[in-house]
């Protein structure tokens, strides 16, 4: 298995991946207006942390809270995949059935082909898993 296949099979990594800087060269969605009440902000953060084991929460919390304050959304930049986002031949996707491989191919390439729209922010992270 190559690095890409390993990353796919691993899903959300058990260890904290290194922090990621935001690539300003990529076109990003503009900052959203502030809409959540204080209680709803708590909810947003609790919701985001649902994806990660409890021992990681202390470290992730300030980052996620920072994103919420800065962008009005929690993008979980740290968990952005490291592999390049593009369409690969179907045989490259690790899968037990060919339909699932076809869906992985389409899911990844739909993101990469978004081109000039703010893909990095707009849709990527909630679709990641």
């Amino acid at each position: 298995m190559n690095e890409f296949q390993k990353a796919i099979r691993a899903g959300i990594p058990a260890e904290l991946p290194p922090k990621k800087e935001i690539d300003e060269r990529i076109n990003h969605a503009p900052r959203r207006k502030e809409i959540l009440t204080e209680d709803e902000k708590v909810l947003a953060l609790r919701n985001a942390l649902r994806y990660f084991p409890e021992p990681l929460h202390k470290e992730l919390l300030p980052e996620f809270a920072g994103e919420l304050a800065r962008y009005g959304r929690i993008y979980m930049h740290r968990y952005r995949p490291d592999y390049p986002m593009h369409a690969r031949p179907i045989a490259d996707y690790p899968a037990r059935c060919s339909e699932a491989a076809a869906i992985m191919l389409r899911q990844r390439s739909s993101l990469s082909e978004l081109g000039a729209v703010p893909a990095d922010h707009a849709v990527s992270l909630r679709n990641e898993r």
């Binding site: 809409i35 919701n47 985001a48 959304r73 082909e113 849709v123």
Partner: peptide, 20 residues
Amino acid sequence: NAMGVTQYGQMTAGSYMYIG
């Protein structure tokens, strides 16, 4: 969306059928 419980699917991007 800010609470993380819904998203905008657009058209084909959200259904994995975007081809540029």
